[in-house]
Design a protein around this nucleic acid. Structure first.
Length: 260
DNA sequence: TATGGGATGACTCGACGGAC
DNA sequence: GTCCGTCGAGTCATCCCATA
């Protein structure tokens, strides 16, 4: 998913813009590395925000949102499941590793993914009970599931955890090279999300433009905004220890964002 | 009105080859 | 081995026009 983050994110946004009316409040849950590619589309709907796996627990920021989009699954490393199993049941034999490990690993992985997905879905308003029958306000959930045993398991788990849910097919094609790039309203938001994900150090302008797919002209506009110390983007970048550095002049000039 | 895309000019840097 | 000139790549800055 990370490798094709930009193309797939563009494809998703085109689909959502076509499908969801402007009065919707949309929350997208994705991988941390994908988040910058989905940020900055806030002008499309009444409310829009992006969150990533690992940073959702306990948050109520999106409890008024009527639409959840789960884009990508929270896979863990292959050793996680076996380590977890052995932590509770002790070190297993070579025979166990050869004969039973794969089956148990798959079950544990699927269960963990299901927990993450249900957790993500329940960040929006379906988490709140609105009547004595235990119902919630109508909520749309869009999720891209693999067409394999994991996908089937997850759908079953979601149905179990969310009784009464109405499941419909979503004719969304993830790979569609004919998709035009959706127009962002806010590259600054994407930049902020990107800078949040990287480790301290400096990152060149060309790297940022390539990673986030920011056109040169839009980048220049963004840089001029960042130079304005009172600009909201600059304030937020500064608060996370990020500053703009421009070295040299003319064609040899280089622009960096430095994270302390 | 904001943004994207293409074109163009300006400048620096590093690789490369030739002269010494 | 060192110096120097040439050349291409990379990047910034700007303009113009198209598009949503």
């Amino acid at each position: 998913m990370t490798k094709y983050a930009r193309q797939r994110s563009d494809r998703l946004m085109v689909e959502l813009i076509e499908r969801l009316s402007s009065d919707r409040k949309v929350f997208v849950c994705c991988h941390k590395d994908v988040e910058p590619h989905l940020a900055g589309f806030g002008n499309q709907w009444a409310a829009y925000d992006v969150g990533h796996y690992g940073a959702l627990d306990g948050r109520n920021d999106w409890q008024e949102f009527d639409t959840a989009v789960i884009f990508g699954l929270s896979y863990r490393s292959r050793v996680w499941a076996l380590n977890s199993y052995m932590a509770f049941n002790g070190v297993q034999t070579d025979h166990w590793l050869m004969e039973k490990a794969n089956d148990i690993r798959k079950k544990l992985e699927n269960a963990q993914i299901a927990v993450s997905v249900v957790q993500a879905i329940n960040r929006v308003r379906c988490r709140r009970v609105i009547d004595s029958s235990g119902n919630c306000a109508p909520t749309d959930v869009y999720i891209v599931l693999p067409r394999d045993s994991t996908g089937a398991y997850l759908l079953k788990a979601i149905k179990k955890e969310m009784p009464g849910i109405n499941v419909l097919d979503w004719d969304f094609v993830l790979e569609d090279k004919s998709t035009k790039r959706p127009r962002r309203s806010n590259h600054g938001e994407a930049l902020i999300r990107y800078m949040e994900t990287i480790l301290p150090g400096e990152v060149s302008a060309s790297t940022i433009k390539t990673k986030l797919g920011i056109p040169q002209r839009s980048w220049m506009r963004l840089v001029s905004q960042i130079k304005d110390l009172s600009n909201d983007i600059t304030v937020r970048l500064t608060s996370m220890g990020v500053r703009l550095e421009q070295r040299g002049i003319g064609r040899g000039a280089r622009t960096y964002l430095v994270k302390a």
